[in-house]
Design a binder for these strands. Structure first.
Lengths: 216, 216
DNA sequence: ACCTGAACACCGTTCAAGT
DNA sequence: ACCTGAACACCGTTCAAGT
């Protein structure tokens, strides 16, 4: 079957899913596509470019079909949860996303939707963009850690044991007190806790905006 | 000169600084140390283990000498700013840190200090640990992006041009409105904005805690 | 236009053998 | 105990040559 950009992308995401980001190589991908290694480079100039488009492909549905009759403080968490789901949809999805700058269509649509909702909250353009960044940073970093521990072969058991070995009740009383809530405790709960925290911060920031407008 | 763990670590951080994380290889490091490639493996079992200790070395000073006569809402931002400075101290410091789980001494000391201050804010152990995670996620993800654009050869000029090329006033009105504040605008201001937002969220979370205590 | 085949310049890791 | 030298099994990328 002849190669297309879309097919390379689709197979690359499958390879990511069952090999992981570190073992996703141009050679392995080409083998999965049934072509020689060089062939892939006709469709993507570099591995970097391929990874960016893979990351953007993950975001395909995050910003579409967002209801427009709901308040901003419902839609902002919705966007955050959708981003988390998108990153969780493939192995190492968050690591694929982070440390990469790709102003591609789906990423821009997500950023725009988020900034739009934050503008409805009464934030000026700069605050809206920056508050959006803060929220996105939170989601990406959370899922990065989530996939680091949860998606491990042993479900994070070794990581938890390593943490316990490092903790000393004498020196780390507060961490020991929270021991069961550390390193791969219930990820949904953990996520929602931080999301609520960031949202509370956004609400507070909106309250302090001088040019506050009513939600439309 | 004979190798020691500490010398390997120190030289590794120097190689990181002038080669970057992607070009920090065991072979290049060994060359900088003046030994054969295999020698380094006698001191660190794997590159992974070396990277973890490098990351922890970055955090050497973040948690020490913290004044204990200041309110929590001054010390928490202080810890966040110190973490940012530590990550900024070496090229790709944030990327070195992120996507890695290392319960090593300095990382634990940082986590403990943060959880301790958040407990003073009136948060229960779990909330303290999780709010600390949220703040740390923010700092690491922010600096990751900061080092991605700022530390570029052209100071992020190409990145900004690429963003402009992707932005369409029709589809991205809110992003266009914030254009000058996107992608490597003043990183200090950007950081403080998000930090204030997260701190406001923490304050709000503390207010809602049922078992709220006065700061000691 | 699209792909093969082969090469170039690298990687992380292991390990017998030396000192 | 600590390091060398060499090997193993890989990498990303390029490019003349084919179709």
């Amino acid at each position: 079957m002849r190669l297309t950009r879309d097919r390379v992308l689709a197979v690359a995401l499958d390879v990511l899913d069952d090999a992981g980001l570190d073992r996703l190589t141009m050679r392995r991908l080409s083998a999965a596509l049934g072509v020689e290694t060089g062939a892939t480079y006709w469709h993507f100039r570099s591995k970097q470019e391929l990874l960016e488009h893979m990351a953007d492909a993950l975001l395909a549905d995050v910003a579409i079909g967002l209801p427009d009759d709901r308040p901003w403080d419902e839609l902002v968490p919705t966007l955050a949860r959708r981003l988390r789901r998108a990153l969780l949809s493939r192995r190492d999805g968050a690591r694929l996303f982070s440390g990469r700058f790709f102003p591609l269509p789906n990423a821009l649509a997500y950023g725009e939707a988020l900034a739009g909702q934050l503008a409805r909250a009464g934030l000026d353009p700069r605050s809206a963009a920056w508050a959006g960044d803060t929220l996105t940073y939170y989601v990406v970093a959370h899922v990065t850690e989530e996939q680091l521990t949860t998606a491990l072969p042993d479900g994070g058991e070794a990581a938890r044991a390593r943490l316990d070995a490092g903790l000393d009740p004498q020196w780390h009383p507060h961490l020991v007190a929270a021991r069961s809530d550390l390193a791969a405790a219930d990820p949904d709960e953990h996520f929602e806790h931080g999301l609520a925290l960031v949202l509370a911060g956004i609400r507070e920031t909106a309250r302090q905006q001088p040019t506050r407008r009513a939600a439309r």
